[in-house]
Design a protein around this nucleic acid. Structure first.
Lengths: 116, 116
DNA sequence: GGACTCGTACGATAAACCTCGTAGTACGGC
DNA sequence: GCCGTACTACGAGGTTTATCGTACGAGTCC
């Protein structure tokens, strides 16, 4: 049973392998304001965040949808922990594939936010 | 009349000001394979290219559409020269707004192309 | 077990998007 | 003036997308 601190169990969700991640999909995932916001918050905190940590101006269904797009494009990794689902940026994979890309996009987003 | 080499005249097309360029729109513009390809070719040649210089697997109407998306998002600048329409990357504007972003995206696209 | 929380699944709707074809405009060369 | 080239405009078709609401499943705590 290997008792863990919390029930890290639960189904695991389908993620693309590192090699399957497509640049176009990543850019598309990040081109939505809601999802870009999610990724920015994830990058700001360097810990994993649960979906409910985000206060977005949309319903829960919609939030789920956006997280799935992010997961299926390879931007975030999601794991269940008990009733929550933790989200973490796949910075390592993205950086291996597209060095520096994520950083620049995040920097660009910060700049734009400041300018506003 | 100030005769120019060629008739650089013709209507000028609506472009967003530098300050109006939105990161989300840029990412969205580049998330389409056709448009990413266009931008890569534009970056490879450092001269301005006319629309007809691109051999894309779509009709001319569709090509026009993609160029408009690129123009309206602020990625390219288009000017008429006679019957042709020249396209140039707005690297200066993009770099001023989002330093290094375009380079990284292009590098990422190159990497991905090599990997394929 | 029962209630509560967190997130999913499914269906629906309206908007956006990519694609095309046809018809039309602007410019240049004969 | 006439024709060809380069690109646009408009409308249509089919797909994807973002959003919602409701109903459901998995896990935790009492």
């Amino acid at each position: 049973m290997t008792p863990a601190a919390t029930t890290t169990s639960g189904r695991d969700l389908p993620h693309p392998e590192r090699a399957e991640i497509r640049l176009e999909s990543v850019l598309h995932a990040l081109s939505d304001p809601m999802r870009l916001q999610i990724v920015r918050e994830l990058a700001a905190e360097d810990r994993e965040l649960s979906c409910s940590d985000f206060v977005l101006p949309v319903t829960k269904s919609t939030t789920t949808h956006h997280f799935r797009v992010l997961r299926e494009s390879g931007v975030v990794r999601q794991v269940y922990r008990g009733t929550a689902k933790l989200n973490g940026l796949r910075s390592d994979d993205l950086d291996a594939l597209f060095p520096g890309l994520l950083d620049r996009i995040l920097a660009a987003a910060d700049r734009q936010a400041e300018r506003a």
